[in-house]
Nucleic acid binder design. Structure first.
Lengths: 190, 190
DNA sequence: ACTTTTGTTAACAAAATTGTTAAACATTAA
DNA sequence: TTAATGTTTAACAATTTTGTTAACAAAAGT
């Protein structure tokens, strides 16, 4: 059991799944069952640890999406794959997106070097072509893509809120999210 | 100029518009042009200040939405009002929703007492009836409402990310969001 | 005019965290 | 088995931030 990797995995769970933004190095160390100083030994600083695990998590997501976007499938199949992959990934670390906004943007840490997404732009172009072909109904392709990601991500990211507002337990909400995969596809295409 | 109110207004700007989650009492005091101790004098603690301004901001939003939801308009007009009001409100404090998730849920501070939303449930019921009437196409009313809020909120909340990914400046993105008001209505209803 | 209340400030004390240092320990290779 | 390298730990120092206290100023009430 590699402690360096184990610390990173634990930090990801705490930050991006549990959503404990303010977890101290001590809490992370406790959860990982290691001495706090090890965190400094391997990662030098808390900020650095955060940056590393964040980048890794983003990278994983990016790879998954790239695989789908650049795959050779019929457009509608690709769309189904995308929904499946993206919603599953975001369920793994639902707080990752919120942290991007609240932690990283204001710090200007990561967005500085972050360039426009080649894959996303390619996907928008593909959507444009499919609209021309008539595979899907006429829309602005940028809106189409943003709609798609909104419909997938928002209900997961905001789950704690809407579970309260709608008075649904975890089980019910899980079913609700499962239903959405087919529903989003339908709403977006037809 | 009432300093107590002025501190609250400044805190709202910093927290919910600027999105500076980690703003210290000193920074808030500086931005408001008052002595730091005044914050403790009026609000006792930083957490308390946060809770107060958060609740106020939520309350404001809730009132706006209640006004629309309980108004006597034809359903489609009500929908248009809702989109207009909600998107404008969320543009005022785009970081408020993220903070609900990252700050408040994990702390279990505010969600404990927060009950299911009467207005939201009433609105879902109205949607159900309109679907029955055939005003809008057949869908699950809960999905309909979640779709609606997803399409409105997500692109605003995530603006910093998608502006980068799509390489759009503030002006372009503002136009893009304006377009969405009509677009969302169309996608949702037809 | 003076007494009380409210508002404001600077200085202090306490707490919480972080990063560093140096030493102990373990592992591997010479 | 010793040297060298890498890993782990406790103790320390520095920093940051917060909340409190006590003194001072202004306003209001009597």
């Amino acid at each position: 059991m590699n402690k360096e990797e184990h610390i990173k995995a634990t930090a990801k769970e705490i930050f991006f799944f549990k959503g404990d933004l303010h977890a101290t190095t001590q809490e992370i160390a406790d959860a990982a069952g290691v001495n706090r100083s090890l965190i400094n030994y391997y990662f030098r600083s808390r900020d650095n640890l955060f940056e590393i695990v964040y980048n890794e998590a983003v990278e994983t997501m990016r790879n998954q999406l790239d695989n789908v976007i650049y795959s050779k499938q019929a457009f509608k199949d690709k769309l189904k794959s995308l929904i499946e992959v993206y919603m599953n990934e975001i369920l793994k670390y639902p707080y990752k997106e919120s942290f991007l906004i609240t932690e990283i943007c204001s710090k200007n840490v990561l967005l500085k070097e972050k360039k426009k997404s080649q894959a996303l732009i390619a996907f928008i172009e593909e959507v444009r072509q499919e609209i021309e072909k008539g595979t899907i109904k006429k829309t602005d392709p940028v809106h189409f893509v943003i709609n798609l990601f909104s419909l997938m991500a928002y209900p997961i990211v905001m789950a704690p809120l809407y579970r309260k507002l709608l008075d649904l337990n975890k089980e019910k909400y899980k079913d609700f999210l499962s239903e959405r995969k087919a529903m989003v596809f339908k709403l977006i295409t037809e």
